[in-house]
Design a protein around this nucleic acid. Structure first.
Lengths: 175, 175, 175, 175
DNA sequence: AATGAATGAGCCTTCATTCAT
DNA sequence: AATGAATGAAGGCTCATTCAT
């Protein structure tokens, strides 16, 4: 990956996350990346190709993030780590961009890729099982619901106190 | 409101909800409504005017929906009704469109209008208080988070069993 | 001519004069006249029809204006009166509108109707002849040129002192 | 300036001059220039940008034209040259287009830029002074009036004998 | 690899005009 | 006579994409 390719990718990520995929023009991306518009197409074929490249890069990020949870054997820790992921993302501005984009895209393209979440869902199910919850599967689902809710609020609400809320949830899930 | 005006509004609602505001062209709306494109502008001035008209109509809907909850005096029933709203919306396809649009718009425009939710947040807080929860405010927030999560999953996930999940949540929130 | 017809005509005159024929929309005229847009077409068939109606009304005005000059027997007075016309028009705001429109239209439609000016040209030619000028025809032409120049400056230049200039011309043409 | 850019500029100049700025569509310009419509905007941003580009080019032309007059020391020659400019413009069809546009624009935008004429007005004033005229300033103004009149007639009247008229004026201004 | 010129389709909007009432 | 709904064509402009260099 050349330097210019990365510049394009970064510009695209930021713009897509900020203004949405559909509302970001390739010319704006080129300008922000300091690159000729044609070059985008030379390297990524398509506007869609650009998106795919970003997504691909993101998927590996996801895997790293999830691996940490899935590997965990202590059930309580599985839950804790899941919440802490959200917290960590919120802190890192670059990661924040990336995840905001993920959510924006979900709504723009109406693709909620369940498969991606399957590993954590399973990890959480087993965790709740081990902890003796009655309906571990549904409990896992609820926790995932909370995660989506947190993302919605964090990215769209101006004055949402993420840290505090996660703190509270962490306690609530402790017996 | 003439017949054609309503046709336009309905077509717009559906298309905005399905493809997003920015990605829906006025010509597509006109075609779907069986109307000349110019008529849209005669009646609604703008593409944005169209959106406002839809939103205005929606806000009154919101009020009706919320009034039912806010009036409720039985705290447990406040919580139950809040969940059931989600369930009801999911059943009514026309309402469904409208609410999907609301969420899409949130992400497209990055405006999460907190004020709109304030009445229920308050109602929920009082309800949790009466029921003797330790942190009623945060409990209300969590329930709202769950609602956002439910919306995200319901509108974006192909095979999400809303009914079932709400059933489960209803029980979980019963003591 | 009904009241509404006149309102339309007046609104059109003013708008055409101020913003030009092409740049004035029939809807703007209707709004200014306090009348439905359809009525314009009921009465004047066309946007062009509107213009014709205005022009026709103007032609009679022209005739009245010119009659005064053509009838004059004293040659010096013919010249004086010609200049004073310009002065008078400049004073009367309604007439001013009308004549501004005439000039605007000349440039917009590229029609400089020579025939309309023929009577004064003749009157001026005879006047210069009687006064013993060598080339009465060309002198008449020059005076007309000055009139066009005056109109150009008066209507387009912010700080043009029409009165003063005419005063000076009047003296210059006195022997 | 690429070849196509110039083609666009020329097409625009001619069409603006012939049909007016407001009445000339960018698509017509593109067609006449043998170019895609989008290219106009790539190079000139705006329809207005096109006009500015033309005007800018014209202003330098103006300077060259005026320099010749302003530099002249012989007062009589200053006057002669001023008239001859008009004559020359009338002969050169490309220049003719440009000046016609200038006048059309004056009437379309109602902007009579006095500053542009200031240099010649001054040159003429000094010339009339040197020649012993009583009111040199007003004499200069009158000559400018005649120029505006000439332009009006030349561009709008079908059968106006410019050459002849200028010949006559030249003699009239000779003592 | 990289640029910048060039394109064609589509977008939102305006406008003159027609029609039913 | 008068209105207001409705239309279809055109207008300025943006955008993703291609191509020659």
């Amino acid at each position: 990956m050349t330097e210019k390719q990365e510049k394009i990718l970064n510009a695209a990520l930021e713009l897509f996350a900020e203004e949405g995929y559909g509302s970001t023009s390739t010319s704006k991306i080129a300008k922000k990346a300091g690159v000729s518009e044609g070059l985008i197409f030379r390297h990524f074929t398509n506007k869609e190709g650009l998106l795919e490249a970003i997504s691909k890069e993101g998927e590996s990020r996801l895997k790293v993030l999830f691996a940490n949870i899935v590997m965990e054997s202590d059930p309580q820790e599985v839950i804790n780590k899941t919440f802490r992921i959200a917290s960590e993302i919120a802190m890192d501005s670059e990661q924040s961009h990336f995840w905001k984009l993920q959510y924006k895209l979900k709504w723009e393209t109406e693709l909620y890729d369940e498969k991606k979440m399957e590993p954590i869902r399973n990890a959480l199910t087993t965790a709740f099982e081990k902890l003796g919850y009655q309906n571990p599967e549904q409990e896992a689902d609820i926790l995932l619901l909370l995660l989506d809710g947190l993302a919605t609020r964090y990215f769209l609400s101006d004055n949402f106190d993420m840290e505090n809320m996660i703190e509270f949830l962490l306690i609530k899930y402790q017996e």
